[in-house]
């Protein structure tokens, strides 16, 4: 190494040119590899993002063409509107209902399915099956389950002599109902990733614990959860972002109703942009959602990562 460096510094200007040329060609090669994703990200991500920020500062006509520059007015209006405040509250509640419950459920299922038992493959397939189902198909299933007259839930209630509930039509229950359906839909993904994380844990750690003779709950607390923490961290981050962006099941199950109780921000953006043709306001909401997701994710990295044990 030192020999080469000496030659390079004490060599003639010819060497210097050669080195420049090599560095340039290295850079070009790197860019060639990056180009496909740069183009894709540019067209579908970076450009729309910049365009959204731009639009959020304008009043637009019904085609979405910016007409008047209004500065922060769209944002000011949003913060003053009760509808947006309700949206923000619904989104926060929705995230709160779905993410922790979903991860606890997926972790429990993953730990169960990580046992070495005959036929465990069947359960692993079942638990991860929701990952392979489209949101539309899942929503239809849940629509039937929630149906006030023929749905399973109300039949169970009827069998127990409890009056039926308007699951998706009662503002008290609608968000909860959509959350339950969402937890079910997202469990498959979280389960699969967590099961992978569990199977990556070195078996000899458990064998060592068996020789020490510690209890199962001690193993869970002192080995499984700490060793799973990087995976849990990843799943939590992805689930959080996912929950903020939920749209499909809300559109299919409640359309933001009843009384805007399930009108999460993404759905509100959709309504403003494509039903009310108020693209400026929709863009402003999108920017706020982006900022909210960013803050939550950064906070999570700052606080959560301290408790994560990377190997």
């Amino acid at each position: 190494m030192t020999v080469i460096r000496q030659e390079a510094t004490s060599g003639s200007t010819g060497d210097w040119h050669l080195e420049r040329k090599r560095a340039w060609s290295n850079w070009m090669t790197g860019m060639m590899f990056l180009l496909p994703s740069l183009i894709l990200f540019g067209v579908f991500l970076f450009y729309p993002m910049v365009r959204t920020v731009y639009l959020s500062l304008f009043l637009t006509d019904s085609q979405g063409v910016p007409v008047v520059f209004v500065g922060w007015e769209n944002f000011v209006n949003l913060f003053q509107s009760t509808s947006f405040q309700l949206s923000a509250k619904a989104t926060a509640l929705f995230v709160l209902y779905t993410v922790p419950a979903g991860i606890v459920l997926a972790t429990a299922l993953a730990i169960l399915a990580n046992q070495k038992l005959r036929g465990i493959g069947l359960f692993r397939t079942m638990f991860s099956a929701t990952m392979g189902m489209s949101v539309a198909a899942s929503s239809v299933i849940w629509m039937f389950l929630f149906n006030p007259s023929i749905g399973l839930f109300n039949r169970i209630l009827a069998a127990l002599n409890i009056p039926g509930v308007q699951w998706l039509l009662d503002p008290q229950y609608a968000l909860l109902s959509v959350s339950v359906a969402t937890i079910w839909m997202n469990t498959g993904f979280a389960f699969l990733i967590l099961l992978g994380g569990l199977q990556n844990i070195d078996q000899s750690l458990y064998e060592s614990a068996r020789i020490a003779g510690v209890s199962e709950s001690y193993k869970l607390r002192k080995i499984t959860l700490p060793m799973l923490s990087p995976t849990l961290f990843f799943v939590t981050t992805v689930s959080l972002i996912n929950a903020f962006q939920t749209f499909g099941q809300i559109d299919l199950l409640t359309r933001g109703g009843p009384m805007e109780s399930t009108n999460v921000i993404v759905y509100s953006i959709y309504k403003d942009a494509f039903i009310n043709y108020n693209v400026g306001s929709a863009s402003a909401q999108a920017v706020l959602l982006f900022v909210a997701v960013l803050i939550v994710t950064v906070l999570q990295f700052k606080i959560g990562e301290r408790k994560v044990h990377y190997q």
Binding site: L205, E207, I211, H309
Partner: peptide, 17 residues
């Protein structure tokens, strides 16, 4: 294993990271 009153050293040491 815990009732056999023995200790074991594993090839990869099995230390808790």
């Amino acid at each position: 294993p815990s009732d056999r009153d023995l200790s074991m050293v594993f090839q990869n040491y099995a230390l808790y990271p």
